[in-house]
Design a binder for these strands. Structure first.
Length: 787
DNA sequence: AGCACGCCGACT
DNA sequence: GTCGGCGTGCTC
């Protein structure tokens, strides 16, 4: 019988296509192959091989591509990702199969040279210098040799032509040297050392000789209910991860869908299941040093470690710290790594030669063969969310990959996300806490400035108490940071004559004045116009008035107050781009500045050892945005910002300007009682009928005609019939928006239950009214956020 | 992702 | 009359 291969193609296709396997080929699952698709040739991955009589009607596989096949765990991750995110399988595959693109192939073979032993025909002074350096007979790069000898490259070239030096192709520079887990032991505090011991003990649970593990033993069902969606429902009718009374064996039984057979998540080999561990440490507690020890331990065991970072751009400092501890810089991975290098890292990872990778979210799909640990640094960061194409949250996918590979996952954060906190509380994740700062340093003392009683003067935005604090700080030779999460000069501009407010023509937001650029800019869509001299509405000349402060306006006020101090404004639109911004951050860290005025960009990344005062100019921003995560986000941001103070020798303090000092978020910051905040926030969400976390999927209804979109959406909403435990929010909660010329809104579906969302949504569409005219209904999913 | 098909606006 | 815009649909 002819052999047929089911091949998944990295395109937005939901299922594998079947091809005939020619007799000359033997294909195995996971092989990367070339196949005809329509008029062209593409690559794909063998997802299944079977015998079938109909094989002869199919187009044949062109051939196998000589790259390492996609291993089972990675294929399983692809399947899982597609299923959970409602993305086409092919799109999920594309994440794991970024082959080097042809254009980037520009392979530069480096040339190495060494002395051939022949004397040069014309021994000039320059040539002799080169030869004396090369006399040791070692192979060097051409430019390295020229530099060492202090001559130009042309002298070396001349000697090659002459035959006195021989040129050889140089093996490409290694992508990463092996890290040495015992290179330099950084001194740890007792709290850190204890955390390291706990962490390593948890990472490798002792096989319990067949005894059942207790729930708390890090069964770490990722809180994602996607495993065995549908199938699970049929078996139990209830989400397995919400029933903490199940034994391990029972959980295994329900959590592993039959259809996936031996590709079961977790340890099928008798090893205890590796846990997910939340490593929570206050700012400045030295979490990095703690998980570095876990990485070292992993490397000593001959296994690979992956450290995920939210933004690779901020990690130069991090890589140096890594090098201090391990002697070399680790391999790094992010979307900017291209072509040849990309392929070499992939190959090195696949061969097990690269022991540690530090990377952005896409590093999750590298073909590790011996993965022993995944660390997700700053796990609460929103940058872990992929919002385009396949929607996924890298932290959650890390947990999933950890389960598939049965390796521990460490989630590190000073301000964990609510869902991770909940998982830790419910025993799905283990929890290690570092409650104190490293080196006996104290957390900054945080006080509120009640703006109702402590009013700034008219036209001013700094409360007198804050100004005094800045003055004191500078007098002591320290730095102050004024934090305001608003770029530009003023968030709103209006005409004093006619009252006209300048609004974006695409969005419904106010245009932000940027005095530096002399422009009005929309922070939503990027639309910008020149700041008019006269009102565009009534024509009155020179009568526009800025309302509210942005960092530029604060800088104006601070400059007037402290004319002889060095002041810098740091925001993401910093003139000169990321490069100069990095340089400026360095300057600030070295103390080359007295007052920093910054947006959220200053909340993370660089350490400022001279900073002892943080003034938050508007602690209430973001508390009223309507985003269900507003409180959580604000708490995290302000905790991070205020935590910048007192990281050096001297203790720090923070002052929060607020109109609502009794707001739970502000109160939690003042008391330092994060615990209470998390509890209250979880309770508040439950009271509002929102799960503390969960999956959010949507039907997106869109049409060019507003009324048509609305009518169809209403009809669909009526047809919803959500199953038990699923919440459907109609158009009222997800307002109509104009996106690229189409009116669209989402019918939101929220659930924490393990149901087959995809089937439910498809079924819902089928039950709903027939689509007439220019209306489209699409399925979308956002596993984590509400907006 | 490509590449074709197809249905409405301005042009040698 | 056609050239070409990009919306829609298909590729085993």
């Amino acid at each position: 019988m002819p052999s047929v291969a089911d091949i998944l193609i990295p395109l937005a296709l939901d299922s594998a296509y079947s091809y005939a396997v020619p007799a000359r080929l033997t294909l195995a699952v996971g092989d990367v192959v070339q196949i005809p698709l329509g008029p062209r040739e593409t690559v794909g991955v063998v997802w299944g091989v079977r015998e079938s009589p109909s094989g002869s009607n199919l187009r044949p596989v062109t051939g196998r591509i000589e790259v390492p096949p996609l291993a089972g765990p990675l294929r399983e991750l692809v399947d899982w990702l597609a299923r959970y995110t409602l993305a086409p399988k092919g799109s999920a595959l594309a994440m794991a199969l970024r082959l080097p693109d042809e254009a980037a192939q520009g392979e530069t073979v480096r040339i190495g040279v060494r002395a051939s032993g022949k004397a040069p025909a014309r021994p000039t002074a320059a040539r002799l210098k080169v030869l004396s350096v090369a006399a040791d007979g070692t192979l060097r790069g051409k430019s390295a040799l020229a530099k060492e000898a202090g001559v130009s490259l042309s002298v070396v070239d001349g000697l090659i032509d002459d035959g006195a030096l021989e040129a050889l192709a140089l093996a490409p520079e290694p992508v990463a040297l092996p890290p040495d887990p015992d290179h330099a032991r950084v001194p740890l505090s007792e709290a850190q050392a204890q955390a390291v011991r706990d962490l390593i003990a948890l990472m490798y649970p002792v096989p319990a000789g067949g005894a059942a593990l207790s729930l708390a033993d890090g069964l770490g069902s990722p809180h994602l209910p996607g495993e065995g969606q549908g199938e699970v429902c049929e078996i139990s009718g209830e989400a397995p991860h919400l029933t903490p009374t199940l034994s391990v064996q029972e959980r295994e039984a329900v959590a592993v869908p039959e259809a996936q057979g031996k590709l079961a998540v977790g340890a099928g080999d008798g090893r205890p299941r590796a846990p997910t561990i939340l490593l929570e440490g206050v700012t400045g507690s030295g979490k990095t040093e703690v998980y570095f020890e876990a990485v070292a331990d992993c490397v000593r065991r001959g296994r690979q470690a992956l450290i995920l970072m939210p933004e690779i751009a901020l990690t130069a400092q991090f890589l140096d710290r890594f090098a201090e501890r391990f002697g070399v810089r680790p391999a790094t991975w992010h979307s900017g790594i291209g072509g040849k290098r990309r392929e070499r890292i992939r190959a090195g990872v696949a061969a097990g030669e690269i022991a540690v990778v530090v990377g952005a979210r896409s590093a999750l799909f590298l073909p590790f063969t011996e993965l022993g640990l995944i660390v997700v640094d700053e796990e609460h960061e929103a940058a872990y969310k992929q919002e385009d194409g396949v929607h996924y949250h890298a932290r959650d996918m890390a947990v999933v990959r950890g389960r598939i590979e049965n390796c521990p996952v460490v989630l590190a954060s000073a301000t964990p996300s609510l869902e991770t906190r909940v998982n830790a509380e419910r025993g799905r994740y283990r929890h290690i806490v570092l409650p104190e700062r490293f080196g006996g340093r104290r957390l900054p003392d945080i006080k509120a400035l009640d703006m109702r009683s402590d009013k700034p003067e008219r036209g001013s935005f700094l409360a007198p108490v804050l100004v005094t604090a800045v003055r004191e700080t500078l007098a002591e030779g320290n730095q102050a940071l004024l934090f305001l999460n608003r770029r530009g000069y003023a968030p709103l501009t209006l005409c004093r004559a006619c009252g006209h407010r300048y609004q974006c023509r695409n969005c419904s937001t106010w245009l932000v004045e940027h005095r530096f650029r002399k422009a009005l800019v929309c922070h939503q869509c990027g639309y910008a116009e020149r700041r008019p001299e006269a009102c565009t509405e009534c024509g009155t000349f020179d009568n526009l008035t800025p309302c509210g402060p942005g960092v530029e306006r604060i800088a104006e006020e601070v400059t007037a107050l402290f004319p002889d101090k060095r002041i810098i404004v740091l925001s993401s639109d910093f003139p000169g781009g990321a490069e100069r911004l990095r340089a400026e951050l360095q300057t600030v860290a070295e103390g080359g500045c007295d007052i920093v005025i910054g947006t959220q960009l200053v909340a993370k990344g660089h350490n400022f050892p001279h900073l002892t005062l943080v003034g938050v100019l508007d602690a209430d921003i973001g508390l009223t945005s309507g985003d269900p995560r507003a409180a959580e986000r604000t708490f995290q941001l302000l905790q991070q910002v205020t935590g910048r103070a007192g990281r050096g020798e001297k203790p720090g303090r923070a002052l929060l300007q607020t109109y609502q000092p009794d707001h739970p978020v502000i109160a939690a910051l003042l008391s330092g009682d994060a615990e209470r905040f998390y509890e209250e926030e979880i309770a508040a969400r439950e009271a509002a009928g929102l799960p503390p976390f969960g999956r959010l999927a949507a039907l997106i209804v869109s049409a060019t005609d507003r009324a048509v979109a609305e009518a169809h959406g209403q009809a669909l909403a009526r047809a919803a019939e959500p199953p038990e435990g699923v919440m459907v929010l109609g158009p009222a909660e997800a307002p109509l928006a104009l996106v690229r010329g189409r009116y669209r809104f989402r019918l939101l579906v929220k659930t924490e239950r393990a149901i087959d969302l995809q089937s439910y949504l498809r079924d819902w569409i089928a039950r709903g009214p027939k689509v007439r005219g220019n209306v489209k209904v699409a399925i979308d999913v956002d596993p984590q956020s509400f907006l």
